[in-house]
Design a protein around this nucleic acid. Sequence first.
DNA 1: ATTTTTGCTTTCATTTCGATAGCAAAAATA
DNA 2: TATTTTTGCTATCGAAATGAAAGCAAAAAT
Lengths: 139, 139
Amino acid sequence: MKNKFRSGCPIASTLDIVGDKWSLLIIRDMLIKHKKTFKEISDSDEKIAPSILSARLKLLESYKLIFKTKVPDNKKENIYLLTEKGIRLTPIIIEFSLWGDSNMREFNEIDIIDGLKADKSMIIGTVQNNYNSMLLQFA
Amino acid sequence: MKNKFRSGCPIASTLDIVGDKWSLLIIRDMLIKHKKTFKEISDSDEKIAPSILSARLKLLESYKLIFKTKVPDNKKENIYLLTEKGIRLTPIIIEFSLWGDSNMREFNEIDIIDGLKADKSMIIGTVQNNYNSMLLQFA
DNA sequence: ATTTTTGCTTTCATTTCGATAGCAAAAATA
DNA sequence: TATTTTTGCTATCGAAATGAAAGCAAAAAT
């Protein structure tokens, strides 16, 4: 894996990893919808192609935003879970959600998301707590 | 301009506009470094190609994140400024900065950014206030 | 009057994307 | 046990985006 970082700027470096059209949607599905398998993530509204999903999962794993595991009773199915690093993307996801909700209605019909009017840090806390609770069954 | 939105999800819709490797870096330069001309933005650490910068500025303008103006004593130079919609991206930019600062040091040497330890909403407020103050000279 | 700067556009090679098909191993079903 | 279905991918290939370099006209500076 060659060095793909354009500069030492933390914003640019973050964009170098998740600055594409798909990575943050994969994270969204994992973090908010608790999707865990290739199949589940494939079945999103936005129809990600398997070749892209495969490549993104590998990349996200290489930067330790996600990790791969299995459950004892299924030898085939991979379970993809967010690491701490990945879970810490929650504030970014929530800010994207809030910005789209407030600023894109002029150009696209935006879904109403329940609870988006609540206090920001509470939303972030809730999302992270819910994910961590779900994680316990794999610990 | 064809409809390029993949779904009604606010996160996906935001990604459809600024979900590429360059748009948020252009916004960063405008918002934080107060860059205003094609030349100034071209001279970033990350060396954006003029063809890409040109295309991005047009796109950001079409979605009303930025607007173009001129100063009376220079007929050539375009001045690019952030709109309200654009300025409202501040929380996203700050979260990218914080996440990169905390999570990417393992993979890239990340610049130390002054004042990033301060209270999040204070940082956001300061960045936005500074930008708005600068804007006054064009009002 | 000449040179330099600015804000682009054009060109074209390279890279990435993305739709579709395919496939082997495992799981489910008969 | 045999067959079918599901899962988690990989391969292929045309289309789109990226990016390096050159070019260029209008304006500004000298």
